[in-house]
Design a protein around this nucleic acid. Structure first.
Length: 187
DNA sequence: CCTAAGATCATCT
DNA sequence: GATGATCTTAGGC
C-alpha cells in the first residue's frame, strides 16, 4: 500500500470507523510535506449520538456521507479546525494527535511555539500546525496536498473514552499509541 | 498539582 | 438564541 494506491485505501476506509481508527495509529500523515505519525484517533459512527452525522446529512457534514478516504473538516467552538477521515457513509475518524516528523519548522511558525511535544497534541492544535482549513473539506486524502502511508510496524494501541462529549460519553472509541508523549492526554 | 472561565462563530432550533 | 468532537490563561491549593 503506497501513496498512489487509491484503490487499496478505498477498501481500507470502507469499513466502520471503530475498526479503522485503531489501525490508523502508527500511520504517517502529511499535508504539503508537513506532518508526522498518527498517535491518537477517535471513531464516530452513524448511529452514534455524539457524531455530527447522527441527525442526518446537512451542508456542514456533507463530506461524512460522501465516499470513503476523503477529508471532513469542521470548525470547533468557533475557533479551531478539526480533521476527520471519512469511512463508511456517516462514519469518520477524528485525527486527534500526531508525533511531528516532517516540516517541524513550518509547524513551529504556524503555532508560534517551540515545544515539539505540544505542536500536534490535540485536534485543534494539529490542524493549526498542518494548516488545515475548510478548503480541504471533501478532498480525497489519497491525492496531494495529502500524503498518507500505512504503519511500518504493528502499533501497540490503547483505548479509552472519547474527549469533550456530552453524549455517549462512555463509549471507548478513543485510540492511542501506548505511552506516546505526543498524546493530547494520557490514555 | 488542579479547576474555571473566556475566546468566537457556523450551525441548528 | 443556544450550542459545542477545543485551547489557553489565570488563579487556587
Amino acid at each position: 500500500m503506497a501513496q498512489g494506491d487509491a484503490t487499496v485505501w478505498q477498501d481500507f476506509f470502507d469499513r466502520d470507523a471503530q475498526t479503522v481508527a485503531p489501525e490508523l495509529i502508527g500511520a504517517q500523515l502529511a499535508i504539503d510535506g508537513v506532518g508526522g505519525v498518527i498517535v491518537e484517533t477517535e471513531a464516530y459512527a452513524p448511529d452514534d449520538p455524539a457524531s455530527h452525522s447522527f441527525r442526518g446529512e446537512t451542508p456542514r457534514n456533507r463530506a461524512m456521507f460522501g465516499p470513503p478516504a476523503h477529508a471532513y473538516v469542521y470548525r470547533s467552538y468557533g475557533i479551531h479546525w478539526c480533521l476527520n477521515l471519512v469511512c463508511r457513509p456517516g462514519s469518520a475518524v477524528l485525527i486527534r494527535a500526531l508525533e511531528p516528523t516532517t516540516g517541524i519548522e513550518a509547524m513551529r511558525a504556524r503555532r508560534g511555539l517551540d515545544n515539539v511535544r505540544l505542536l500536534c497534541a490535540g485536534p485543534g492544535r494539529l490542524c493549526q500546525a498542518l494548516g488545515v482549513t475548510d478548503a480541504l473539506d471533501g478532498l480525497p486524502v489519497t491525492l496531494p496536498p495529502f500524503r498518507i502511508e500505512p504503519p511500518k510496524a504493528p502499533a501497540i494501541v490503547g483505548s479509552g473514552v472519547r474527549i469533550g462529549l456530552t453524549k455517549a460519553i462512555d463509549v471507548p472509541w478513543r485510540f492511542g499509541l501506548g505511552g506516546s508523549p505526543f498524546l493530547s492526554r494520557k490514555l
